[in-house]
């Protein structure tokens, strides 16, 4: 199933994983595993993502102040670290999302495809 999809996986561009995590966390606090699952559930299953790489990204954003983290108890009654978006993180999300769309449109125009926005 998922293995089949991954045979056609594409490499995730630099910075995209952070943008995805910020987007997921915009809906509320989650622990790392739940963030990974949400990214997959949102259709990124075809992206070649090593789930472990999510954690250094989360820690970097925590250090930047985009995320706040605290230890809590998971649904399985296990100690888990929950991340939530800070005001700085929301601002960063808006900037990164905007930048991503500009890059994406520019690349699409160069490639001769109509941009999703323009379509």
């Amino acid at each position: 199933m998922a293995e089949d999809h991954r045979t056609e996986d594409v490499e995730l561009p630099p910075g995209a994983l952070e943008l995805l995590a910020l987007k997921v966390l915009a809906r509320g606090a989650l622990h790392g595993y739940a963030i990974a699952r949400a990214i997959q559930d949102r259709g990124a299953e075809r992206l070649r993502i090593e789930e472990g790489t999510l954690y250094p990204a989360l820690h970097r954003m925590e250090r930047r102040g985009w995320l706040a983290a605290e230890w809590g108890v998971s649904e399985s009654n296990r100690r888990a670290k929950y991340y939530r978006l800070t005001a700085g993180g929301r601002s960063a999300l808006r900037e990164q999302e905007s930048a991503w769309r500009r890059v994406s449109d520019a690349v699409a125009r160069v490639l001769g495809h109509p941009s999703p926005k323009g379509a």
Binding site: G32, Y55, R79
Partner: peptide, 8 residues
């Protein structure tokens, strides 16, 4: 944290 992810 990593162990929790692997377990889940």
């Amino acid at each position: 944290e990593l162990a929790f992810h692997l377990e889940a």
